[in-house]
Amino acid sequence: MASTDDKVILKSSEGECFEVDMAVASHLQIVKSVLEDCEGSSDKVVSLFIVEAKYVAMIIEYYKNYVELKEKHEEGGFEEKLKEFEKQFLEQIDKKELKGLVMAVNYLNAPALFDVVCTAIAKHIENKSVEYVREYFGIVNDFTAEEEAQIREEHRWAYDGVNDD
């Protein structure tokens, strides 16, 4: 049983607290550097000012499994098991939430999950139309109709066979 010394409390933007093992939290570079800055202090609460509770929960879930799988498959097979888990993990996340998650992960500076979420978003938009991609990212079209037509004409073949939903 781990002592409370190995725990840290992460506080979401709404003030919700999550008690997490240090082994898990140390994957978040921001937590690591905050704790290093206040070394010696008994207060082990890290405020993640801009991260909503639902994203804190997702990030903790990911790294909890990451740490567990790594321990369990020390002899090999970790990457395969992690891939399996990642697939399942991503399935429960709404496509719109992926954007909020990537912002949160970027802020917490957690490279492994950042790569996973970026890849998932890329997969999602891979076969989507220009209009869908704009709407998904909230991109404002600042081309004039002529400019856009010209850009599309440049690589006309690239716009075939995409779906809008």
Binding site: C118, I139, A158
Partner: peptide
């Protein structure tokens, strides 16, 4: 919709197949 900062957009778009990345170029000037 939340608009993502450019450095995150870059990380996402760089993971697309070349043809899909090209297509995204028609979304905006940036």
């Amino acid at each position: 919709s939340v608009y993502l900062p450019e450095e995150i957009m870059e990380q996402i778009l760089a993971r697309l197949p070349p043809r899909a990345a090209l297509r995204c170029g028609a979304t905006s000037k940036q």
